[in-house]
Design a binder for these strands. Structure first.
Length: 359
DNA sequence: GAGACGTGGTT
DNA sequence: TAACCAAGTCT
């Protein structure tokens, strides 16, 4: 172990003293720390901030209070409650994992084993540790963004944590400081410390219980840690979204492929260009009347920009629906997962006016 | 190892 | 405002 700045005991003592006064003690998933509730919260909290998660967690627990309830539900309803939260593979994996828990573990999350937990889809090394520490109080090491940031600064760990050598070093530090007792408070304290004091933007060093030993602070370089991922320019993709309404004002939706962007969610039919859109209409809805194309808007994702041009149209003919195609009434929304920009379009721009193409 | 995967907040 | 980032995991 490389030059510790504190013994584990001293680190834990200072951290827990700070946590008692400044930690978060009344988050929804802290009220009843059942493995199921902790599991759901940990999945929702992946790459997502607490304030965003809270309302989703409350709705999810109200609808799916047990593993069994979740396993009994259909994927559409699970994704419906995940709509707007992002990273939808989390929702799909959660649903899949709930059925595994029912079928392979007797309906109980395998909290006795880190490895058994991590075999469930969506649960990696850190989340498995968090579930065990938070729900059982058994010693388990976590390494999330908060812990990475705090330990990176405390020890001035150079390099981006996506590099395996850096990740190994951070895991070793996390392991070194994690206590055998008070693990529930300790792990929560580490996350609260990173989220509220040792923030990326403006760390509150003057209030920090480790200010005297923090290596980054000692060098006046706390803002340089942790090192960020090398960035590349975002490519731009363009797409046409068909806003096809039938005589009753319902909108045509298509289910996205089960993997990839918005996997398993419902979206408007998408086309690369006008020709493809027109060809599809000719083949499936020959009586469709096209309106004037709306101006494009841009949706920025982590890895690309999506420029969307909505194309309004109306038709009278019935269109066969199936597993991947349906009519959707914006006035009486069904419990299905909708891609966020689509939901936004349907709520803010409905009812769609159909202006003549040449007007 | 590198890229994919979302959305909302912050600077 | 455009970039950057947040309680990571999977392929």
């Amino acid at each position: 172990m490389p030059a510790p700045v504190l013994t584990p005991e001293e680190f834990q003592r200072r951290l827990l003293a700070w946590f008692e006064r400044h930690g978060r003690h009344d988050l929804p998933w802290q009220q009843d720390r059942s493995p199921y509730r902790v599991w759901i919260s940990e999945i929702m909290l992946q790459q997502t901030q607490v304030a965003t998660v809270i309302p989703y967690f409350e709705r999810f627990m109200a609808r799916f209070p047990t593993v069994q309830a979740l396993a009994d539900a259909g994927q559409d309803e699970v994704l419906h409650l995940w709509t707007g939260l992002g990273y939808y593979a989390r929702g799909r994996n959660l649903h899949k994992a709930s059925r595994q828990v029912v079928n392979e573990h007797g309906g109980e999350l395998p909290v006795h084993s880190l490895d058994a937990l991590a075999e469930l889809p969506g649960i990696g090394r850190s989340t498995a540790g968090a579930i065990i520490a938070q729900s059982r109080g058994r010693r388990a090491v976590i390494l999330d963004g908060n812990v990475k940031r705090s330990l990176s600064r405390l020890h001035a760990v150079e390099g981006w944590s996506g590099r395996s050598a850096v990740a190994r070093r951070l895991w070793a530090l996390a392991e070194y400081y994690t206590p055998h007792e008070y693990v529930t408070d300790y792990t929560q304290a580490m996350m609260d410390f990173g989220a509220t004091l040792c923030r990326r933007g403006q760390p509150d060093c003057p209030s920090c219980p480790f200010a005297d030993v923090c290596v980054a602070r000692g060098r006046g370089e706390e803002r340089r840690f942790p090192e960020s991922k090398p960035r590349k320019v975002l490519p731009t993709r363009t797409t046409r979204m068909l806003l096809l309404q039938d005589a009753e004002g319902r909108v045509l939706l298509e289910r996205r492929p089960s993997s990839g962007l918005w996997g398993g969610l419902w979206s408007l039919p998408q086309f690369d260009d006008d020709e493809q859109l027109q060809a599809w209409l000719d083949a499936h809805v020959p009586d469709a009347e096209l309106g004037r194309t709306w101006s494009p808007f841009t949706h920025v994702f982590s890895h690309f920009r999506l420029e969307i041009t909505p194309q309004p149209a109306r038709c009278n003919a019935a269109l066969a629906v199936d597993e991947a195609r349906r009519w959707y009434d914006p006035g009486e929304p069904a419990s299905i997962g909708l891609a966020a920009p689509v939901k936004s379009l349907l709520t803010t721009m409905a009812p769609f006016t159909l202006e003549p193409t040449g007007a």
